[in-house]
């Protein structure tokens, strides 16, 4: 189990460090969805609630930190779905990087569980659409922010 954790963290630290705008965030998201939907990939295995609890807690803390750093970087650079907000500036100031990272990690976890039982990536994408709503360009199921096309 430890090796899956280490492998995911190694890949995530490289991939998330390269996320500097909405398009790159969308690329990260597509890759993670693909990994999570691949049975027995390191990502799918790392999401299971098996193995040593302290190891898993450490893994999740470190992944959440990597996501939070990325969210913070995107917020500082102004990468938000501003066009969909009536007041982009105040909206951006409202986004809390740490809490957004918790939601993104929960969406990856909960979304992949729902997707695995339905054998359909749609729930995972719906989860990420909601979690990544402050960065509307990274959407998957719908072009814009949970709205019907």
């Amino acid at each position: 189990m430890r090796t899956h954790f280490a492998e995911v963290l190694a890949r995530e630290s490289v991939c998330l460090a390269g996320v500097t705008d909405g398009a790159k965030l969308a690329g990260w998201r597509r890759r993670v969805v693909e990994e999570l939907m691949t049975p027995r990939s390191p990502y799918a295995l790392a999401m299971r609630l098996t193995g040593d609890v302290p190891d898993r807690a450490d893994f999740l803390d470190r992944w959440r930190e990597l996501i939070a750093e990325t969210v913070d970087r995107l917020l500082r650079s102004g990468t938000t779905g501003d066009t969909h907000f009536s007041s982009g500036q105040s909206r951006r100031a409202d986004v809390d990087a740490q809490k957004t990272a918790v939601l993104i990690l929960a969406a990856l976890h909960g979304g992949s569980t729902l997707s695995q039982i339905s054998k359909d990536p749609w729930p995972l994408n719906a989860a990420l659409d909601l979690a990544l709503a402050p960065f509307a360009a990274a959407e998957g199921n719908c072009p814009i922010d949970n709205m019907n096309p």
Binding site: L49, V53, R56, A57, L60, V102, L103, L105, A106, A107, L108, H109, G110, G111, T113, L114, W122, P123, L124, A126, A127, D129, L130, A131, N141, C142, N146, M147, N148
Partner: peptide, 28 residues
């Protein structure tokens, strides 16, 4: 708003709930 996709939001909310449960379980 009428254009919001309720099914998609409900699924997103369920994923947030389930993922939240799993994070809480690990963090105790």
């Amino acid at each position: 708003p009428p254009e919001a996709s309720t099914d998609q939001l409900a699924t997103g909310l369920m994923a947030a709930l389930q993922g939240g449960y799993m994070l809480a379980q690990t963090a105790r």
